[in-house]
Amino acid sequence: MKLLFPRPRGGLFAAAALAGAALLTACSPIKIVNGLTPSSTYGFEGDIGYGAAPRQRLDVYTPLPASMAANGAKPLVVFFFGGTWSNGDRASYKFVGEALASRGAVVVIPDYGLSPVFKYPVFVQDSALAAKWALDNAARLGADPKQVYVMGHSSGGYNAAMLALDARWLGAVGGSPKQFAGWIGLAGPYDFLPIENPQAQVAFNWPDTPPDSQPLAHASAAAPRTLLLAATKDKLVNPVRNTGQMATKLRAAGVSVETHEYDDLSHITLIGNVAKPLQWLGGPVLPPVLAFVGLPAGR
């Protein structure tokens, strides 16, 4: 299913959109967004080790009783942040944790090894270890172990895709993609050889990048159900080559794929739109994510 969410570009909406874009590209945009994000709408357990390395730490956001589903079953979403595998940290994505936990999901946001210190496949291996921790601890956290999802934005969407599509990574830590109820990619790069981005070149040791590092190479009938979201005017990750090709190949293999394309969002505002302070930017992005993981899709 392909859904488009166009918005008028004139008048007050255009001014608001420009203001939001400016907010997200300011000196400390995520700090501003997180500062405006409620802190009383979820439970929190932070700085948990999923491995021994300094970057192998994660935070957990849990729903308050009032936001639990009527049957008590809660999905668990492991969210991987973007940053060209070169920057970012879990604390900066409080707004994602709040958006999902306040509506009934348990959310795990891990750090992972970043380039140039760590290169492919270390960040995928870290992501697999974090996802395995989430699978093993889902019941303890109050989530349904059969409703675990991996989700990511930009390079984090790549991480999520590799875990969902390439069984090597979870298999190495005693897990399997079959344990996922689905995966969610927001503006993820799934087919990007030859590599042009300088940071990505370092992260993947270009030109000695193995062809099987590309998620699209692993799209098959074994993939879990899939939700793909992209901005049609994304200038950083080509939505046709990446989201479009992934959707086409998975559907051809018989996988259930839902896609949403947004004319009024950019690569950055696609993820920013899930934050309460920025949901007026366009979209909406959060409702299809909530619906995909089995939660009420109210904005």
Rank of each mutant, 00 (worst) to 15 (best):
K2P: 07
L3Y: 13
R7G: 05
L12A: 15
A15I: 15
A17R: 15
A17I: 01
A21T: 14
L23H: 12
L23M: 14
S28M: 12
P29T: 09
I32D: 09
G35L: 07
S39H: 15
G43P: 12
G46N: 08
G46C: 10
G46L: 08
I48M: 06
G49E: 13
L58P: 13
D59C: 06
A66H: 14
A73W: 02
K74Y: 04
K74W: 07
L76I: 08
G83N: 03
W85M: 14
S86Q: 13
Y93I: 04
L100Y: 10
L100F: 13
A101Q: 09
R103F: 00
I109D: 02
P110K: 02
S115W: 04
S115L: 03
S115N: 05
V117A: 15
V117N: 13
V122G: 00
D126P: 08
D126E: 06
S127T: 03
K132D: 00
K132C: 00
A138N: 05
A143M: 03
K146Y: 06
Q147R: 15
Y149M: 02
M151V: 03
H153P: 00
Y158F: 10
N159L: 11
A161V: 07
D166C: 11
G171W: 06
P177I: 13
A181E: 09
A187D: 12
G188N: 03
P194N: 07
N197Q: 09
N197Y: 02
N205V: 09
D208V: 01
D208H: 10
T209H: 00
T209A: 01
D212N: 12
Q214N: 06
H218Y: 05
T226D: 06
L227A: 02
L227N: 06
L228N: 04
L229I: 03
A231D: 06
T232K: 13
T243R: 07
M246R: 05
K249Q: 11
H260E: 06
E261D: 11
D264G: 12
L265Q: 04
I268K: 01
N273E: 08
A275T: 00
A275E: 03
P277S: 05
W280C: 09
G282C: 05
P284H: 10
V285Q: 01
P287V: 13
P288W: 02
V289L: 06
F292P: 02
P296I: 02
A297L: 00
